[in-house]
Nucleic acid binder design. Structure first.
Length: 309
DNA sequence: CTTTTCTCCTGTATGC
DNA sequence: TGCATACAGGAGAAAA
């Protein structure tokens, strides 16, 4: 279940193994993997071929490869002085998506939905996704309303048009915990529901929401607007901390030739305090962790440390 | 506008 | 053994 730390591990893998290379071809299987591309998967394949991957970026759980302009196209139409609009290949891993960097000749894995080959004939990039909640899309880059700027040039970096509604994640310069807490304070929904709302703060999924709330000692169903602003800020601090800890461990189990969304699995087995621990003792007070149904999924919490009040 | 519910998908585990 | 059901859950559309 890729959340921010897992997606960041994948992004780093793309920086190491894909950025700087030129795409020879993209082959999509089925029509589901290409998201909201009205001209169809064949058109997406055509538009990506020949483009160079110039950067790999991320906001929350969204990942995108910035594509350079097609040099052949520029030469063919020299009077087009203005740069053709910058585009990115946006990837969302959904529930079970993986990006694998492998030799092009290795057997096609089960549930492979996309294969990217490169002009240097090196390792290929595969998108593999069992539950098909993930997908790819080719999206125009537009100015980022959050004004994220390149550290060196000072120029604003573009954001894919389909990602503008996603709030900055806790590791971005544009992240403003005071503003996020103020936003949360206006909401009557349960704290966990708000933590999972990617328009409020991005990158948090079911696992890290439960872990952050366990660390903060707050029940998942507590309404946001009854929590104090310091309490909300404390929760946001735990969100950031728990994801940073996962990232530390996920980054170390990363195989050089294998960009794997399960990179943080070692973290899951060792360091989780609430998620998936129904019936096991709370590591703070010893009481049994309980599981409750919430939003068509499970919430795990300690009934003593995390009072409903 | 805010908030909640529904739907998409398939491998694995469990119950009868 | 075989079939039915629950479960995992991100996110966007639809409904309230």
């Amino acid at each position: 279940m890729p959340e921010l730390p897992e997606v960041e591990v994948v992004r780093r893998g793309l920086v190491d193994h894909v950025v700087g290379r030129t795409i020879e071809s993209l082959a999509l299987s089925g029509s589901r993997v290409a998201r909201r591309h009205l001209a169809g998967p064949g058109d997406l394949e055509d538009r990506v071929a020949g483009r160079t991957v110039v950067a790999a970026r991320r906001r929350g759980k969204y990942l995108w490869m910035v594509l350079g302009t097609q040099s052949a196209h520029d030469q063919a139409v020299p009077d087009r002085c203005e740069q053709s609009e910058a585009e990115a290949l946006v990837v969302h891993l959904g529930m079970s998506g993986q990006l694998l960097v492998q030799d092009p000749d290795t057997p096609v894995p089960r549930h492979q939905h996309a294969l990217v080959t490169f002009t240097d004939a090196g390792h290929a990039l595969r998108f593999v996704d069992q539950r098909t909640f993930g997908g790819l899309s080719l999206v125009e880059l537009i100015p980022d309303p959050h004004q994220r700027r390149d550290a060196r040039t000072g120029d604003p970096e573009g954001i894919p048009e389909s990602v503008v509604h996603i709030a900055p994640d806790p590791f971005e310069p544009a992240y403003d915990p005071m503003a996020v807490a103020a936003n949360m304070k206006r909401r009557s929904s349960a704290i966990k529901r708000v933590l999972l709302d990617q328009r409020v703060v991005s990158g948090v999924g079911n696992i890290y929401a439960d872990e952050a709330l366990w660390r903060a000692g707050v029940h998942p169903l507590r309404p946001c607007d009854v929590l104090t602003r310091p309490a909300l800020l404390r929760i946001l601090g735990h969100v950031r901390e728990v994801m940073a800890a996962a990232l530390d461990q996920g980054g170390t189990s990363f195989d050089a030739l294998y960009v794997n969304v399960n990179g943080a699995s070692g973290y899951f087995s060792r360091s989780l305090h609430a998620y998936g621990r129904e019936g096991e003792p709370c590591q703070r007070c010893g009481n049994a962790i309980v599981r409750e149904r919430f939003m068509n999924r499970s919430s795990y919490s300690c009934p003593v440390c995390q009072r409903k009040r």
